[in-house]
Design a protein around this nucleic acid. Structure first.
Length: 244
DNA sequence: TAGGCCATCTGGTCCT
DNA sequence: AGGACCAGATGGCCTA
């Protein structure tokens, strides 16, 4: 694992050549490095030209002391350029990795949406639902299915109502193994993670959005046409997701 | 050509 | 600290 960014940068605060010698790989072009430190190196001798001993205190105005001071400035400048390059490189590397994760996450989300589309009734023209249409349609579809079950359980004896009323497209909602069309991993391993788990609850609940008068579906709305469901049910159910 | 949809990048925030 | 999640920005593609 790479060292934390802050650690790397604090290591670079020191301008000595020994502390930066292992970072030269981050700069691909030493010439660029030298160019970027213009303020102190515009016309000075090369770094290796340093000769003689460090300046003696009290003699900093001698030509040799001035050369040493210039050399120290140049080294600090080079170290700063290297540290900025390292910072940029590490930030860039983390950004690229984060972008990759984000891309994967969105791909997984799209795969889940595709799985959802696959268990929804398809339209005759096979038009692919957009994301928002898929979510609204699924919401309405689940609501209508559960409402159908509720009415069927009220009016029909025995437990056959489900099998008779559920359209074949909703096989994953029936008890038993999940449909091959749905990727079990996309929904998680637990039963609660199943898309069918969400279908059961909100419909008979008086507090459900279904009971709200706020939303109504428009006549002929294609997203409210469910094959296999009683028409009179569809024409009396409120749509609690606004559809424009 | 405007508007809708989408993929991707990005920085911020939250969570483990 | 690193990953997940989120929302905003941006640009490409398509269609009416």
């Amino acid at each position: 694992m790479p060292a934390p960014l802050e650690t790397c940068l604090s290591d670079l605060d020191c301008a000595s050549s020994s502390s930066t010698s292992d970072l030269s790989g981050f700069l691909t072009d030493e010439e660029d490095c030298a160019r970027l430190q213009q303020p102190t190196s515009a016309s000075g001798p090369p770094m290796t030209a340093r000769k003689g001993s460090p300046g003696i205190p009290g003699t900093s105005d001698t030509p040799r002391a001035q050369d040493d001071e210039q050399e120290r400035r140049r080294r600090r400048g080079r170290a700063r350029v290297r540290s900025e390059a390292l910072l940029h490189s590490l930030r860039r590397s983390r950004r690229v990795k984060a972008n990759d994760r984000e891309r994967n996450r969105m791909h997984n989300l799209n795969a889940a949406l595709d799985a959802l589309r696959s268990v929804l009734p398809s339209f005759p023209d096979d038009t692919k639902l957009t994301k928002i249409e898929t979510l609204r349609f699924a919401y309405n579809y689940i609501w209508a299915l559960a409402e159908t079950l509720r009415l069927a359980d009220q009016g029909l004896p025995g437990g056959g109502a489900r099998e008779r009323l559920l359209p074949p497209q909703c096989a994953p909602c029936l008890p038993g193994p999940p449909s091959p069309a749905s990727d079990a991993e996309s929904w998680g391993s637990g039963a609660a993670a199943s898309p069918c788990a969400a279908a059961a609850s909100p419909l008979s609940d008086p507090s459900s959005p279904a009971a709200s008068e706020d939303f109504t579906y428009g006549p002929g709305d294609p997203l409210f046409s469910f094959p296999g469901l009683p028409k009179d049910l569809l024409h009396t159910t409120p749509c609690f997701i606004p559809y424009h």
